[in-house]
């Protein structure tokens, strides 16, 4: 009966109830999040992973704006069939500059983490303008407006790099200064394709071998 008498006290006191709920619900988060947020290996870039260039970042922001992540994942799992289909499985060190992460939770379309270099720029252009022209039974929507907008329309790229630098991405002053110029003459379509073509290229077999194949 002692437990219930104790509980009566919480039940009769608004403040205790609020505090009790906050305390009990915070535990799981603290135990799981604190170690993960302070684990250095999860913040260390793998050898070939670098911050996104101005054009790549623009492409990534377009990918986010169109919400490609709801149909395409970017996470190859360490399963035989998956590695066979997509390539080396995804390591944490490849995602340290991904704000936010784009691993996705659904594959209506294939995983894209290792898509870089697999298809030509022209293929991507045709596919984005009309998926069914290249994959007859595709249910992917078309993105004609990307060709009609300039890459610089996506947002203030200099500002974006500055903010990311504040968050710890090692951009040089030169990169920030040249950001706007880098986008000149490019459409949003061009930027998105540049982004897609570099996806997954931050990984090398040597990385995995040296790290013993672990995360």
């Amino acid at each position: 009966m002692n437990g219930l008498t104790f509980h009566r006290k919480i039940e009769e006191n608004t403040g205790l109830l609020i505090f009790g709920i906050l305390f009990v619900s915070a535990i799981g988060g603290l135990v799981q999040l604190l170690p993960v947020l302070t684990q250095e290996s999860l913040e260390t870039a793998s050898a070939n992973t670098r911050p996104y260039s101005a054009v790549e970042l623009t492409g990534r922001d377009i990918y986010m704006r169109e919400n490609c992540v709801v149909c395409h994942s970017q996470q190859v799992r360490p399963l035989v069939a998956e590695v066979e289909r997509y390539g080396p499985y995804s390591r944490a060190g490849e995602f340290v500059y991904d704000r936010p992460f784009l691993w996705g939770s659904k594959r209506t379309g294939p995983d894209l983490h290792r898509i870089g270099g697999k298809y030509s720029d022209d293929w991507h252009r045709l596919h984005l303008l009309d998926p069914r022209a290249v994959v007859p039974n595709s249910i992917m929507p078309a993105y004609p407006w990307l060709d009609e907008r300039q890459a610089s329309d996506t947002g203030d790229i200099t500002n974006k790099l500055t903010v990311l630098r504040r968050l710890g991405h090692p951009y040089t002053d030169e990169q920030v200064a040249n950001a706007e110029a880098d986008l000149e003459g490019l459409t949003e379509m061009d930027a998105l394709i540049v982004y897609l073509q570099m996806l997954g290229t931050g990984f090398s077999e040597e990385d995995a071998a040296m790290a013993g194949g672990a995360h």
Binding site: L42, D98, R99, P100, L164, L167
Partner: peptide
């Protein structure tokens, strides 16, 4: 841009 990146995010 998210305060968290990659696996942590």
């Amino acid at each position: 841009y998210s305060a968290y990146a990659g696996a942590q995010d």
